[in-house]
């Protein structure tokens, strides 16, 4: 039997994270999100108008404010990660991680408070905040942040943040643009979206998209470092301070291992919903078709890596190109193609 166990751990095997160590920050984050969301609930007291009157709501907890904090914190985190990569100050690294966690906490709080607000504006309007492009971009930012933070802690690679966080900032900027075009207004749901499937189908998709985004970050770092190494430049910045090529390759792979199963689940949930709403689990709607293409791209990635034993450069390119396909599936289809997923329209 051929032994594929050429995958020798590129990471420090002397270090063994315990489950407790891995999940402690998640518990803290959940506690913060719960406290902040409940505080907002208490401060609102059933009156949507208080978002402008109450000091804490206006500047901290109302969904618009919390999301503004998330935006700012993600931008700061991106800068600090880059600073950390350049000056290699461990304290800067800790600040970057802390800032990213804060952004994620504010983002989730913002989404949960927005959920309340849909009910406060009109009890009949109430719906999970995953119903339009503005809302799902917030979701994308926080989920990508979470996946990144997991990999950072699991494999102790902080430099990756300097590449993933700028991608998140890209999503944040896009969302700011949407908000400036009235995309952030809370509106009631059209009949097609009035379904419990929305709550699970949409978030599942974004776990997939977020993971592919992180993989793309690792892929880009790989390409930079590989270029420097192949030029035989041992003093290049990337050679000195990036994770090793093996580590980056492994991170790329790990992120896709998170992304593909969840994305598969998302497609299946979408099919189940389509079967209930449109009379067929698969209609070759442009969004469906492109999600199938994305699925094929990453299924191909795993086949190449697991069955063919491909490593390194081709996988890094694959992951970067794959993310472009993902991006088209998730924004491009809404911009350029017609179809039944039109509620994700730009404006």
């Amino acid at each position: 039997m051929s032994d594929h166990a050429t995958t020798i751990s590129p990471f420090n095997t002397q270090w063994s994270p315990t489950t407790g160590y891995l999940f402690r920050p998640y518990l803290i984050a959940i506690a913060f999100i719960a406290i902040m969301t409940l505080s907002a609930y208490g401060l609102y007291g059933g009156e949507i108008g208080r978002s402008e009157q109450n000091f804490f709501l206006k500047y901290l907890l109302a969904s618009q404010s919390a999301i503004a904090w998330m935006n700012a914190l993600f931008m700061i985190a991106a800068v600090v990660y880059i600073v950390h990569l350049v000056v290699r100050n461990p304290f800067a690294g800790k600040v970057a991680t802390f800032t990213t966690w804060s952004a994620v906490i504010f983002g989730f709080t913002g989404l949960l408070v927005r959920w309340q607000e849909t009910y406060l504006i009109n009890p009949e309007w109430g719906h999970a905040p995953v119903s339009n492009l503005y809302e799902v971009f917030i979701l994308l930012s926080v989920i990508t942040g979470l996946i990144y933070l997991y990999l950072e802690r699991r494999y102790q690679v902080r430099t990756l943040g300097a590449f993933v966080l700028p991608l998140i900032v890209g999503a944040v900027l896009f969302d700011l643009w949407l908000a400036s075009n009235n995309g952030s207004m809370i509106k009631p749901l059209v009949p097609a979206l009035q379904s419990y499937w929305m709550k699970i189908h949409v978030p599942a998709n974004f776990v997939g998209y977020g993971a592919f985004m992180v993989a793309c970050g690792a892929g880009m770092m790989f390409l930079l470092r590989e270029r420097a190494e192949s030029k035989g430049n041992p003093n290049a910045f990337s050679v000195k301070y990036f994770p090793t090529l093996d580590q980056l390759d492994e991170l790329n792979y790990k992120a896709i291992l998170i992304g593909l199963p969840t994305f598969t689940l998302a497609i299946i949930l979408g099919a189940a919903w389509a079967n209930e709403a449109w009379g067929g689990y698969w209609s070759w709607d442009p969004k469906e078709t492109w999600s199938l293409i994305v699925w094929l791209v990453y299924a191909g990635f795993l086949h190449a890596r697991i069955s063919k034993g491909w490593r390194g450069l081709p996988m890094a390119w694959w992951s970067v190109a794959g993310f472009l396909v993902t991006l088209f599936c998730f924004v491009g289809v809404n911009m350029f193609l017609a179809g039944m997923h039109s509620y994700g329209r730009l404006t």
Partner: peptide, 16 residues
């Protein structure tokens, strides 16, 4: 010990 995949995790278990 041997493993097919997820060598990182396995390496850590093996180390313990």
């Amino acid at each position: 010990g041997t493993t097919q995949k997820n060598v990182i995790d396995f390496a850590q278990q093996f180390y313990v």
